[in-house]
Design a binder for these strands. Structure first.
Lengths: 182, 182
DNA sequence: GCTTCCATGTAATATGTTACATGATTAA
DNA sequence: TTAATCATGTAACATATTACATGGAAGC
């Protein structure tokens, strides 16, 4: 289980609310580990019970109060312990790819539409990551080495996916043309 | 939930035992969806209850008997229904990437070792996929279009990862050199 | 003698998802 | 007025992991 470790990694940089973390899981870090707010609030509760994080209440005007969590020394120790152990294999659940594999039974046009939608999302992500990489690079890579490498992974991943999507797009269009010619 | 759909996709090609499926999940299809044998046997049980698959006993000599499952017409219908619905977003749990993101607290040498291990696995996979792609290509891409596209995804994914790994390797070695120079 | 492959499963536990619940503020 | 953003949570349910269990055959 390493949702807790992903959270601890994020809290290492700065204190954050559950809501903040959920946003980060939906964006940057979400590329490598994802979690919904429900999971995050639950895990923050457990981490707090085990004194790996603590929080302070921050009342706000016009907005609901929030709890800002910070990592504790125990949390940091736990993180270091975990970092020393070999990481388990990456797990993925990519439903779209399962659809492609089962493409014979699928409607080609439906597949193309989904592909375009996903490609759009990937292009947006790519732009975000590229901007971030540029910023980190200007600030000096060495200072942000691990953030930089993480973002680079995001960039290379999006590019590879988009390149593949282009191949698929062409194949599916050819497929459509053949089908209508029949 | 689409473990069932991943299984149905695999059974579309040919009948298979739970054990066969587990192997496929560990290899080819495992790149996009993974599952352990426990999950698979459970799901096959449920699919059988719902008449989406059926099986025949195959006694073997020197080896335990096996159950060969096939997809039924109901199973095929369920698969078609699912293929029409938009796929959920891909979910990933990549512990190694979480480690990289938290790299400041990690031991650089440990990271390098893990990186090399993962790179080795990726290179092996790449070779497997490239061989498969070549074979499919020779048989005629159009005949195996969806298998071909799935394999291409595998290839591009491995290459992108390995390219990234090379960047990381160089950065980490520089990092080590700087640390020892201090 | 030890490990790996074949082949199937159950049980206990841990994780993750979906649905439900609240409520003010701001922008379209 | 409809939706989105901010912010937190609980409960029910579904899915996934880990540990346990069995046992012959083949290879080192």
């Amino acid at each position: 289980m390493s949702l807790r470790h992903a959270i601890l990694v994020l809290l290492q940089d700065q204190e954050a609310s559950g809501y903040d973390l959920a946003r980060e899981f939906a964006n940057s870090i979400g590329l490598v580990w994802n979690a919904t707010h429900q999971q995050i609030y639950l895990e923050l509760g457990k981490l707090n019970d085990q004194r790996m994080v603590n929080f302070r209440h921050v009342p706000q005007e016009g907005k609901p109060d929030k709890k800002l969590y910070s990592i504790t020394e125990e949390g940091r120790q736990e993180l270091i312990r975990w970092l020393r152990k070999p990481a388990g294999p990456a797990r993925i659940r990519d439903a779209f790819m399962v659809k492609v594999a089962g493409g014979e039974l699928a409607d080609t046009q439906t597949l193309i539409n989904e592909l375009e939608l996903l490609a759009k999302q990937r292009r947006e992500r790519l732009a975000t990551f590229e901007a971030l990489a540029k910023k980190l690079d200007e600030q000096g890579r060495e200072q942000n080495l691990f953030s930089y490498l993480t973002v680079r992974r995001g960039i290379l991943d999006q590019r590879a996916w988009l390149q593949w999507a282009e191949e698929v797009r062409q194949s599916l269009h050819t497929d459509l043309a053949n089908a209508s010619a029949t």
